[in-house]
Computed example of a mutant assay.
Amino acid sequence: MRRLESVQGRLIKQRLGLSKLSHNTALLKALNIKKIEDIVNRNVLSLYSRIVGVESPARRLMQHLLSRFIFYGETVPGRNNAG
């Protein structure tokens, strides 16, 4: 995610003719550009909401993964959060 945000800032600075040393956070805020992380999080929540709203194999998979997370604390089967 950091790499995408870095590329986003670099491209904006390049397009505006600004120095590479300009700070991305201040620039994005001044231009009212949303962070990539915020956009991805919003889209993931929207997708999750649409998946659980319709009976489908994707919904059953999401329910399975959620139950594993609740029971074992795992986000990916066979791996723990420390890895």
Rank of each mutant, 00 (worst) to 15 (best):
R2L: 09
R2I: 04
R3F: 03
L4P: 02
E5Y: 01
E5H: 02
S6F: 06
V7W: 03
V7C: 01
G9H: 00
L11W: 03
L11E: 02
L11I: 02
K13V: 01
L16F: 04
L16H: 06
L18I: 04
K20Y: 04
L21P: 02
L21S: 14
N24Y: 04
A26M: 08
L28V: 02
L31V: 05
L31S: 04
I33G: 00
I33V: 15
K34C: 12
E37W: 00
D38V: 01
V40F: 08
V40Q: 09
R42T: 14
N43Q: 15
V44F: 09
V44D: 08
S46Q: 13
S46A: 14
S49L: 06
S49C: 08
R50N: 14
I51V: 15
V52F: 05
V52D: 01
G53R: 06
E55D: 15
A58V: 03
R59N: 11
R59F: 04
R59Q: 14
R60V: 10
L61H: 08
M62L: 15
M62V: 14
Q63Y: 05
Q63F: 06
H64D: 05
H64L: 12
L65R: 01
S67F: 11
S67R: 12
R68K: 12
F69C: 05
I70W: 07
F71Y: 11
Y72L: 07
E74G: 00
T75F: 09
P77F: 01
G78P: 03
R79N: 10
N80D: 15
N81R: 14
N81L: 13
A82P: 00
